[in-house]
Design a protein around this nucleic acid. Structure first.
Length: 516
RNA sequence: GGCCCGUUAGCUCAACUGGUAGAGCAACAGACUCUUAAUCUGUGGGUUGAAGGUUCGAGUCCUUCACGGGUCACCA
């Protein structure tokens, strides 16, 4: 009987994955040794290529056999081997880049016995370049007839199965490279994401905005209501926070006279993970002097409509089981009206503050006492948000949950602010920026009271920011747009992890029994 | 964090109320010069996520833990 201690000790999962070798890894090692004996360089320093796989397919797929006969198109094309069909002295295989695949054909009497024998040591997953003339097979598939091939990198592990690909969601996120190798469709999501950000820059640059970068490490986290990550700077001996929003710095730039600024970068919030939340996420924020939240609504419509038309060539987007129309103008509804319409509560009931708080408290039994504003926020999230699929501006939320927004011209309890809801998600948040330093101080002090009561998410008092306001912030409209969520809608993905290359996952921990 | 579900070969998945852990792809050996989920013949591959428990017997039942997915709560 084998005793337990005879089994290798498990340090942790990473360790196991690095050291465990299955039969397939061992088979590849044998091949590597044989290739080394033949003097083959498996990881060369450089390589000459003429066309990518994508280039070859897009440039030559339409040519006929006669064209290839006449023109003798020669290419040197690199790619990862994704399939091999060996038939004795001839072999078909496909090489792929991140967009498409291309067939190649190698024959012993063309490359010689030795080279063909070396080719027999090639595995699926290896990266090689193939040099040869293009032709079309009898079934019409564009193919490189190999004159030679060169190893560019050896793959030491087997790839996932060719037909089903990589299905394991956890593996897809932990080893995104495998997901990208196996699923060109996933690379499309990230191409779209990149194109979207490029287009956003173009949009704002054309309108005279300048792109800026503000600090990601803040002495006082501000600009949003959220819990921060804390870190420490050794040389200065101070605690710093990863920013929860760039907002306050951007408005200081408006005070400084920059007029129109935007920033696209990460913010960090120390909150839970979900299909709509990643602790680090990408936000676009933009501020424009001499405008207000209504101007921001128009600009938002214009921006997102432009992005859809230029990237997706349509104003109609499919999102899960829904069709989302981005045709302008979009719906605009006041916060309270939305609450009444979707919660089923009569509008008059919202005047009964105690009753509303009680109603909301019942929705979240494990919460500390709610304020009136927070209570309405709870009802909004529960009843309204999931029902707003078409792009909808929800305006004039309670002032007390909007400490950085001007109060409404029509109602002192409301803020001059809107949230853009689309696909049941909050996509954007904007206000007429509060400019009165005294009023701002008062709002911060109210937030500080909330903090004292145990609400860790409430705003801290930022005296530097108040001082900036004391120099004069002109009427300014400002807005933040969650880029990840916008990409979700554009790419029709229901989980934020599908649009972030490396979403946060819990690291695999030590296996049990590994303690010394 | 709560609740529900999942974790079986490198990958994708089976395994009835507890009774010998299987298949396809991949791998290995062989045949094959227009194949394309190539085909044909043969072979190897598993501490069933981890640790305990119940049982004559556990992939299956129970407990704890790890990781993931869904959902609820907070945040964008």
């Amino acid at each position: 009987m084998v005793e337990k201690k005879d089994f290798p000790k498990k340090e942790n999962h990473h360790e196991i994955e690095e050291t465990k070798k299955g039969d397939q890894e061992l088979a590849r090692e044998v091949k590597i040794k044989k290739l080394a004996q033949e003097g083959i360089e498996l990881f060369p320093h450089n390589v000459k290529v003429t066309h990518s796989v994508f280039d070859v397919v897009s440039d030559f797929a339409s040519l006929s056999s006669e064209d290839f006969e006449a023109k003798k198109v020669k290419v040197i094309t690199p790619g990862r081997i994704v399939s091999i069909r060996r038939m004795g002295r001839a072999t078909f295989f496909h090489i792929a880049d991140s967009r498409t695949r291309l067939q190649a054909y190698i024959r012993e009497n063309r490359v010689g016995k030795r080279n063909y024998a070396i080719f027999s040591l090639i595995d699926i997953g290896d990266i090689i370049s193939v040099e040869g003339l293009l032709f079309k097979t009898k079934t019409g598939e564009l193919t490189i007839f190999a004159d030679s091939f060169t190893f560019l990198a050896k793959c030491l592990h087997p790839l996932p199965e060719k037909w089903h690909g990589l299905q394991d969601v956890e593996l897809r996120y932990r080893k995104r490279y495998l997901d990208l190798i196996m699923s060109p469709k996933e690379t499309e999501v990230f191409r779209l994401r990149s194109a979207l950000i490029t287009s956003i820059r173009k949009f704002f640059d054309q309108r005279g905005y300048i792109e800026v970068e503000t600090p990601m490490m803040h002495a006082i986290p501000g600009g949003a209501i959220a819990r921060p990550f804390k870190t420490f700077h050794n040389a200065l001996g101070i605690e710093l926070y990863l920013r929860i929003a760039p907002e306050l710095y951007l408005k200081e730039l408006i005070v400084g006279g920059l007029g129109k600024v935007y920033e696209i970068n990460r913010s960090f919030r120390n909150e839970g993970l979900s299909s709509e939340h990643n602790p680090e996420f990408t936000m676009l924020e933009f501020y424009e002097a001499y405008s207000d939240y209504k101007d921001m609504m128009d600009l938002t419509e214009e921006l997102i409509n432009y992005l859809s038309l230029s990237l997706l060539k349509t104003e109609e987007i499919t999102f899960g089981e829904h069709n989302i129309s981005l045709k302008r103008p979009w719906k605009r509804i006041k916060f309270k009206e939305a609450l009444a319409r979707y919660s089923g509560l009569a509008p008059s009931r919202f005047d009964d503050k105690a009753g509303i708080i009680e109603f909301a408290a019942a929705l979240v039994p494990d919460k500390t006492p709610l304020s009136y504003g927070k209570a309405m926020d709870v009802i909004f999230d529960k009843y309204v948000k999931p029902n707003l699929i078409q792009p909808t501006f929800v305006t004039n939320p309670p002032k007390e949950v909007s400490p950085l927004a001007k109060e409404s011209r029509d109602n002192p309890d409301e803020a001059e602010r809107f949230e853009l809801i689309m696909g049941g998600m909050e996509i954007a948040n904007a206000f007429s920026e509060l400019a009165d330093p005294a009023e701002q101080r008062k709002r911060f002090e109210q937030q500080a009271e909330e903090r004292k009561k145990g609400d860790e998410e409430s705003h801290m008092i930022d005296t530097d920011y108040i001082q900036a306001l004391e120099y004069g912030l002109p009427p300014t409209g400002g807005e933040g747009i969650g880029i990840d969520r916008l990409v979700m809608v554009f790419a029709n993905r229901k989980s934020i992890r599908e649009v972030i290359l490396f979403p946060l996952l819990r690291p695999k921990q030590k296996a049990e029994g590994s303690e010394e």
